[in-house]
Design a binder for these strands. Sequence first.
DNA 1: AAAAGTACTTTGTAATTCAAAGTTAATATA
DNA 2: TATATTAACTTTGAATTACAAAGTACTTTT
Lengths: 99, 99
Amino acid sequence: MRNFIENLNKAFESRVRLGIMSILMVNETVDFGTLKEQLQITDGNMASHLSALEKLKYIEITKQFIGKKPNTSYAASALGKKAFNDHLDALERLINKTN
Amino acid sequence: MRNFIENLNKAFESRVRLGIMSILMVNETVDFGTLKEQLQITDGNMASHLSALEKLKYIEITKQFIGKKPNTSYAASALGKKAFNDHLDALERLINKTN
DNA sequence: AAAAGTACTTTGTAATTCAAAGTTAATATA
DNA sequence: TATATTAACTTTGAATTACAAAGTACTTTT
């Protein structure tokens, strides 16, 4: 391919979204509070990054009540997993410059 | 450590700077024109990313004449190499979530 | 009734990115 | 000598992005 940085996915350039996705790659579902705690950002910021990933269909959202408390949990979609793996592959190739 | 995304280096969040550094990790020195061609961005854009990396002392610049033409070449500094490797380590840990 | 918790949305500001145009200094060409 | 070209910038301006803080909706707890 001509330009090897263009295979990097813009969606994962942000450290926050990179963090969200990497968490969702190893955990089936993770809720809002846990993500916020792990990434240590404000809830508004968290919500907007989640919404960006949702718009891309990279994550799926499940709203439920746990006990009496509302709980929103997130999971990487098949599309999201593929996109993330592709991004990691691109990163790896970039770093090893094997392309 | 508490928050595992904060180990990612902000300087390498940009695909362009990521590209520059990865090229300079495997090539001792690379000149302006080659970098521009590899990354396919405008010269102004190229220059500003290079200047950002230079301000951080991540790269070193050598200006010379090759034949009759001016030629500026770039190399990763020891500091830059360390920073980049640290970033890659952080990325790897993030992805494998081994922290 | 008041306070608190969850998950937002909105607002405003600051930072980042980029292309395009302008600049400098040298060389090459007419 | 004047003009054009090349390399490597710098400047400008616009668009996008990121973020914190504040506000909102709905519910539960006190």
